[in-house]
């Protein structure tokens, strides 16, 4: 099995065995990172960020630098050739000559897919609009795998913006491919999980899904609580954002009823949906999650570039 020559646009691009190979390598890197410090020597990662990002971009850069590779790219579409009206297709055909692998974040949904059609180097989707964010999914799955020991038989609750939350779309779609997972979808009516995502869930008719607007009513029966931010940038109407932004705030009081071994996850950045007092709770793993993200991206790039040979 090899990930060489593949793109990662959607988590569904990888089989479960391929996903497993990424997690296994990430766990090896976590155990002995120094063994991997040179494996990307001579390789260049292009970071093409058409939309602001701090942690995804820095996480990718950190991952490549930790493996001895180099990084180039832009983080603001207004200062790149895009501002002159260049198409994504032309940009990626050019960048293919400058780098060995590229990560693209774009506000338009499907932009990385389009780029992959014209690229001669592997493309990684670093988040496209409200659509998909597959490397966050790798991060989330690695976190669950390490801290829960398994990716199956879990009761997973997603809370907040399930309509525009691309991390939710990628994660629930992928978790539905593992057996016996059950989902609770907690959101205001206006921010429910889109029908097309529900439809795309593996074996969706047989999966147990509970939809509710009330976090308190289900919090006592959850293994993983995945909180998300209500994203201002996804709303066309500011009034709607203001009305919905404080729909769910997780605090110590609400956590009294949660299981002792429940994981509280968040793709970050958070605004106020998780009170700072929750950070001290040992169930809060969102900063650990960010740390695992670097290792997941290291493993992913090493496998896509074909540089890992049982280092």
């Amino acid at each position: 099995m090899s990930l060489v020559g593949k793109h990662l646009i959607d988590p569904g691009d990888f089989t479960l065995d391929e996903l497993n190979s990424v997690f296994q390598l990430a766990e090896k890197i976590i155990k002995k990172e120094e063994k991997f410090s040179e494996i990307c020597k001579g390789k260049i990662l292009a970071t093409l960020f058409y939309e602001p990002s701090t942690r995804t971009r820095l996480s990718f850069e950190s991952a490549m630098l930790r493996m001895g590779g180099k990084v180039l790219g832009f983080s603001d579409a207004n200062v790149s050739s895009v501002a002159k009206g260049e198409s994504i297709a032309d940009t990626i055909r050019t960048i293919s000559a400058y780098a060995d692998i590229a990560v693209i974040r774009h506000p338009k949904e499907g932009a990385p897919k389009l780029a992959s059609k014209y690229s001669t180097i592997p493309i990684i989707n670093g988040g496209d609009g409200g659509h998909q964010h597959p490397t966050q999914t790798l991060t989330d799955l690695l976190t669950i795998r390490i801290l829960k020991g398994s990716l199956q038989g879990l009761r997973v609750a997603f809370c907040g913006d399930l309509k525009f939350g691309r991390t939710v779309h990628s994660l629930i779609t992928t978790l539905s491919r593992y057996p016996d997972n059950k989902f609770m979808l907690i959101s205001p009516r206006e921010l429910r999980l889109p029908e097309n995502i529900k439809y795309s869930l593996e074996n969706y008719k047989n999966i147990e899904i509970i939809e509710t607007e009330n976090l308190e009513s289900v919090i006592d029966n959850i293994d993983i609580l995945y909180m998300t931010r209500i994203q201002r940038e996804r709303f066309f109407n500011e009034a709607d954002y203001v009305r919905l932004k404080d729909s769910y705030i997780l605090n110590k009081d609400k956590l009294k009823y949660a299981k002792k071994d429940m994981l509280i996850m968040h793709p970050l950045p958070r605004v106020n949906e998780i009170s700072y007092e929750v950070d001290e709770d040992e169930r809060a793993v969102y900063f650990k999650q960010a740390e695992f993200g670097v290792y997941a991206r290291m493993a992913l790039m090493a496998l896509m570039l074909g540089v890992y040979k049982n280092a």
């Binding site: 198409s87 949904e109 499907g110 897919k113 496209d128 609009g129 029908e195 097309n196």
Partner: peptide, 27 residues
């Protein structure tokens, strides 16, 4: 994007055909 020719796959129909977009996967 001019390069992105709208492409769809049929997923179901119920009086109206439902097509899923190749790019954004919206119905």
């Amino acid at each position: 994007e001019l390069y992105a020719n709208p492409s769809f796959k049929l997923v179901k129909f119920n009086g109206t055909a439902e097509y899923v977009c190749e790019y954004c996967e919206e119905l």
